[in-house]
Design a protein around this nucleic acid. Structure first.
Lengths: 348, 348
DNA sequence: TTGTACGCGTTATCAA
DNA sequence: TTGATAACGCGTACAA
């Protein structure tokens, strides 16, 4: 079991100095053709590759991006990762992942671990718990140490950094307007608690769409789901809440749900109550997932272009990493990704 | 914008030597209480953390695991990653990901990139193209340089390394037996081309289950789908093939599909042809996905326990990394993960 | 044309 | 009790 070969070993074998080998391999004009040939042939034979770690230490640059997400078993986040990875690899970077699992402390620990030299910058979406606690010291500390951060999707406006967000507000608004156009008179909202930034924005879009059309938003039609019910294990409880919503508001003929799971659950409950989709109730969800496409009936959704978000985030970060340090002009961008309404069978 | 603080800077500030600082921070008995206090207080104030890269170089160990998968936007693989990440973090390792995107060359390039010092070992599932080409030189080269590999799910028996696989054969066999028990007389198989190792094994399970029950496997009932049709864009073509299968074999009353997508497509086509599920046709799929759970009717599947696979793979790899180099006794394990049949509405 | 010395940040060994 | 030195692997400025 041989170790990876180093410059030193090549130098020793060929009886030249390390720097001669180094230069020869980089095709320096300083070195004679003869030596270059010899060295290069030997290096090729032994499949020499410079050690990344040594290069990172020397250059004080790892060419690695850290990505921290709350959850990976999730189409939205895995699509974002794919986008990041695509751009990162194209531009010569690796991607290292950390999962916060929606926990504040895991988010902090993971970031600290990676920030100690393993990576050049972060791309992240903050955990629900962090949003709830509103404790952002770890982001500020990381940036104050010269490590840039790009936030995506779940961002926090207090933090000064580059951001890539979905146009949640307008996406939601357009979705609800679609329902209104389609003659829905009583449109329910199934959303998250307000501390989830994207949930809040989508809720606002829902409200504004209604108001624009002289429809009075009614709190009885707005169901705000507790996070705890998001996980697969609590599907029943989620469905029970939605069933209650339908039963208390028999006039509901349209549903806008802020994610895929809520939308599918709504359809399931509606069917169970003998309602036909889309004839009795029309449903629109919000997401990028596969569930929508393969549901029965297939679900009309607001597409977030997750992969594109990842690509933009990666470009923003790498641009910043590679920018000549002009001045400390600290200018931060917020890229807004437009949504698309993908119409399927759950609406007319 | 300050950089991360180093031992050298602390030493300079406190006017002691670097090694004194280093020892003081590690609470060495060599250092006086007085100095230790001083140094530790200062380090804490400036939030000193050792540079991972420097440690990696010194220790010739990165404490990072590389994971190469064909595709991340996929429940199975993202669950495996979650399992790997869980164990890795618990044992003090980071996880860095590379996507082969089912391409041989991307797999090779990604591995080379990571193998040059960035990681201590690989956990991977080989790309379809690699399986097709049967070119495994990159795996052997990596291992000959002392970097261990753990393969999972899509493995290749020629390669000597640790492996974690699903019991594809028995999982498939049990699924088909279930259909037989449920009185299906004409069971179709929807599978991949044979070079996909798992597809082949599941096909064999199907065949053996039939033979065990004195049913003659018929090639007309076995549909082998071309990879090209796997992507979301070619759903129509996939469905057309399946429709053809049903039309040519009107007696089909059971379907075993080797993945979730094929199973769902089969259900969709069947319904389109006026067949009721499960009364006219019963369907069983193979996978861990969310699609099965949320499909209508929900799909009976063979569960692979993806997260558990990831955990086992990570443990195998880290065990090997941390084992004292006894002898070169090169013993490799193959862990077989049992499957479970999750019964839902698509079977009686 | 080749080699020496230095530094990236750290720890271990040995000397003072 | 403290400090100097070497080493991990590399690239480069400078000396020979």
């Amino acid at each position: 079991m041989k170790r990876k070969i180093t410059l030193k070993q090549i130098a020793k074998e060929l009886d030249v100095s390390i720097s001669t080998v180094s230069k020869a391999l980089r095709n320096s004009v300083e070195i004679s053709e003869d030596t270059k040939q010899k060295v290069q042939a030997f290096a090729k034979l032994y499949n020499y590759r410079p050690n990344n770690i040594a290069l990172s230490l020397k250059n004080r640059k790892t060419n690695t991006i850290g990505i921290i997400i709350p959850e990976i078993v999730h189409h939205f986040f895995s699509k974002v990762i794919r986008g990041v990875e695509l751009v990162a690899n194209k531009r010569g970077y690796n991607v290292i992942i950390g999962l916060s699992n929606e926990s504040f402390s895991k988010e902090v620990i993971n970031m600290e671990m990676l920030a100690n030299g393993s990576i050049d910058g972060f791309i992240l979406s903050i955990s629900k718990e962090t949003q709830q606690m509103q404790d952002y010291h770890h982001f500020n500390e990381t940036m104050s140490q010269g490590m840039p951060i790009v936030m995506f999707d779940r961002v926090v406006s207090d933090i000064k950094c580059d951001k890539v967000i979905v146009d949640d507000f307008n996406g939601a608004k357009k979705a609800v307007e679609k329902l209104i156009q389609n003659n829905c008179k009583s449109i329910a909202l199934i959303t998250t608690k307000d501390y989830v930034s994207v949930g809040k924005l989508r809720t606002q879009g829902y409200i504004e769409a209604l108001e624009d059309h002289k429809i009075m938003p009614q709190s009885s039609l707005m169901l705000k789901i507790d996070d705890q019910l998001d996980s697969e294990e609590h599907l029943d409880a989620l469905e029970a809440e939605i069933e209650q919503l339908f039963k208390s508001n028999k006039e509901i003929d349209g549903v806008f749900a802020v994610n895929e799971l809520y939308a599918l659950s709504a359809m399931k409950v509606a069917r169970k109550l003998g309602l036909d989709i889309p004839n009795d109730v029309q449903v629109i969800g919000f997401t990028d997932g596969v569930l929508s496409k393969h549901a029965t009936p297939s679900l009309t959704t607001v597409s977030q272009h997750a992969q594109h978000m990842g690509e933009r985030a990666a470009d923003l970060l790498i641009d910043k990493l590679e920018r000549e340090y002009d001045v400390e002009e600290e200018e931060f961008q917020t890229v807004i990704i437009a949504t698309d309404l993908v119409e399927r069978e759950s609406t007319n």
